[in-house]
Amino acid sequence: MSPRRGRTALLAALLTATAATATTTAPAGAATAVPAFDHIVLVMFENHSYGQINGSSSAPYLNSLAGQGAKFTASYAVTHPSQPNYIALFSGSTQGVTSDSCPKTFSGTNLGSQLIGAGRTFTGYSEGMPSDGYTGCSSGNYQRKHNAWVDFTNVPASSNRTYAAFPADYTTLPAVAFITPDMCHDMHDCSVSTGDTWARANLDAYAQWAKTHNSLLIVTFDEDNSLSGNHIFTAFVGAHVRTGSYGERITHYTVLRTIEAAYGLPGINNAASLSPILDVWQ
């Protein structure tokens, strides 16, 4: 065989091997639609980059949790500071908010109003909030800037609950629940280790239950530490989830669009033009 023909054969073999690898690593039988979950619980932590959580010895539980489901290696927040990210994930828009100033009041469509309008249920649970329906800007370790649903006049006060009201009987959960840990447990004022310990104590029972009860846990962060291009840690754990790492770029708007799709809702605002996440389902 001539040297030229030998190089050609070698190149062809390499291309074939590459194609075979691509084929074997692609998800076989990936879903064509987001599963119609009975319950979705989303928990938002604070102000840490993907690199500060992924593989960190300070976050053994969050890493273990991600290993049980879908870990997104290219998940990004929308902006800085905190408040507009919470509003973005809840309504598909930052609503023009560029600061953490409080209070904010809006009347536009949001995930809560969508669900309620479709005959579904939504509840936000805020740790440290002094009472159900509270509209104040702060109380102890509670900050309204991390509670987007209270900002919208078309979300009833009954959907704004303290974390103490989160049910022990998960069958009584609303269709979608958002949980906001307090300013210590969300890692804003306390360490990654403190937040990770809280996550294990408060989320694992639901995470394990969700796997066999057509339900889903989403864990994410509002923003990074302002040093990593807003690259954040996000994981899905629960029923129908194909375990693995996923490299497609997603944002808070993509997560919102995926939750909407699970309940047959149209995308709103900046989520409207996005496709829901599909490759993680089996």
Rank of each mutant, 00 (worst) to 15 (best):
L227Y: 13
E248F: 13
H231V: 15
S228C: 13
H231Y: 09
G238S: 05
H240N: 15
S226F: 12
A235Y: 02
E223F: 10
T234L: 01
G247M: 04
R242D: 11
N230T: 07
D224T: 04
L217K: 01
T234P: 00
G247L: 05
S245R: 09
G247N: 11
R249E: 12
T234G: 02
S226C: 10
E223H: 00
Y246P: 13
S245Q: 11
F236L: 12
L217V: 06
T251G: 08
S228A: 15
V241K: 10
S228L: 05
G238H: 00
V237F: 11
F233E: 04
H231A: 13
E248N: 14
I232H: 02
G244T: 04
V219N: 10
V237M: 06
Y253D: 09
T243H: 10
F233S: 10
H231F: 11
R242G: 05
I218E: 05
V237P: 09
T220N: 06
S226R: 12
T220D: 11
G247W: 08
D224K: 02
I232W: 00
T251R: 04
G238Q: 03
N225F: 11
A239I: 04
I218Q: 06
F236G: 01
H231L: 13
D222T: 02
A239H: 11
V237Q: 08
G244K: 01
N230K: 04
E223V: 06
T251C: 07
V241M: 05
F221D: 00
S245A: 10
R249C: 09
A235T: 15
N225H: 13
L217M: 07
G229V: 09
L227W: 13
T243D: 13
S228N: 14
F236C: 09
H240P: 10
D224R: 01
F233I: 09
N230C: 06
G229R: 00
